[in-house]
Design a protein around this nucleic acid. Structure first.
Lengths: 243, 243
DNA sequence: TAGTGGTCTAGACCACATA
DNA sequence: ATGTGGTCTAGACCACTAG
């Protein structure tokens, strides 16, 4: 409930953590880059190395930073192999997960529906980029995605640009638009396929589909993507771990 | 891939962690109970308090232990309010989550299907307890669960005993059968309701349902429950956070 | 060889709960 | 007043990486 800087009194290590996030947000260190060593950060913030360590530990646990022994601490990037499947929970029932292939059907600037606009924190006058794409796995359509992005942040995003890019979508967003997704909330339900979706996905109208509604956030809990995906779950499933 | 004790060479704090888990598994400290203080554990294991602290930190992060400042560290229990909804990801679209009501339809000793038996690590000769129950929220059926448990561990579990108990199922398992669930894997897919499920859940046959297949584990990564739930997701959704 | 993160320790002090 | 966990520090040593 409380905003990012609601807690005024916080332990030192958490204040350091927040300072580091602010630096990341400001782009002082970009995804994939090395951040200063713990000793250097300790000197800069006038705290002990142990306090910096605890701050960095938290950020590493949240996947904002990646520690590599002997090399240093790096800003997490969606281009790294280990991050590839972090936001893709759809897995084949048998065999290993392989990279999916995207087929972009549509990419336009639109006035977003009110519910989408409010989730993105857009004013009534602001536009959004709307993307429709089909995700293919093993050559077959598996997910039909509708994606909304804040227009101001994603100026110049076109279908051609999407098609020219190869790799994970969040990698493109990170590199070309300076927007790094760090967290996402998802809501899942089962729905019946309408005629349009059925056609795209190659199933019968009325067939059960898994609807995944996602809101993605960047540094500072700012929502920057709303996604609505319809998934065929006959040979794939959505996996999750409860701890 | 690697078993619980595959890593022979491990940092001290991890060895301490594993020792603590072994003690929990052995029932030395039961759910809800206070474990010895950090200083006492440090003395017992001949390490510094800082090392014990790091071991306990890990177990607290995994929800095996609960720290309470000024009071001590306690073994996590499914009876605590904070644990109530940890394994229930189905939430109403509007309004707050309320405790669900169980209606037990069936409880028998059975020879489990081979896939269930293998997931529970049961030999061909071993039996299982099979439970069917309906979960009601706001007075309406929302989930139809089928649950399999290892027969040997759940001797004496009957429909009457289930009906007599009020509270979360995992609380009963913990208190009456000494089995504490600490983790669960889930696989989700959308399926069409068959006639039987449709009747129980009050939906049309063929209606889309969310199928949740769960395997639950106790200390030491031992699978002790397989669950297959069919959920009506018209007014409820399954929520998840990707980090 | 030098620099990085990873582990372990010891001790001081703070915040909270209980008697 | 006492005991608990929570924070912060300082320093030693280890393990890994790279020039």
């Amino acid at each position: 409930m409380a905003g990012p800087s609601a807690a005024v009194f916080a332990p030192l290590y958490r204040q350091i953590r927040d300072l580091l996030v602010a630096r990341l947000d400001a782009g002082e260190w970009k995804p994939g880059e090395l951040i200063p060593s713990e000793i250097e950060l300790a000197a800069r913030f006038h705290v002990s190395q142990g306090t910096v360590r605890k701050a960095v530990d938290e950020l590493a646990a949240e996947n904002l930073l990646v520690r590599r022994q002997g090399k240093g601490t790096f800003v997490a990037s969606h281009h790294e192999p280990r991050a590839q499947f972090r936001f893709l929970r759809l897995t084949p029932d048998v065999g290993d997960t392989e990279p999916a292939q995207s087929r972009f059907l549509e990419c336009q600037r639109v006035r977003p529906p009110v519910d989408i606009a409010s989730r993105l924190g857009l004013a009534a006058s602001e536009s959004a980029v709307f993307i429709r794409r089909l995700l293919l796995m093993r050559g077959k359509p598996v997910v039909l995605d509708e994606i909304w992005l804040p227009g101001a942040q994603f100026k110049g995003l076109t279908a051609d640009r999407l098609r020219a890019y190869h790799g994970p979508l969040y990698g493109l967003f990170e590199t070309e638009f300076g927007t790094h997704m760090i967290r996402a909330d998802e809501r899942l339900r089962a729905v019946a396929a309408d005629a349009a979706a059925a056609g795209q996905l190659g199933v019968e109208p009325g067939a059960p589909l898994l609807l995944v509604e996602r809101t993605s956030y960047t540094y500072g809990e700012r929502a920057v993507e709303v996604r609505r995906g319809l998934c065929v779950t006959t040979d794939y499933h959505y996996w999750n771990t409860l701890v």
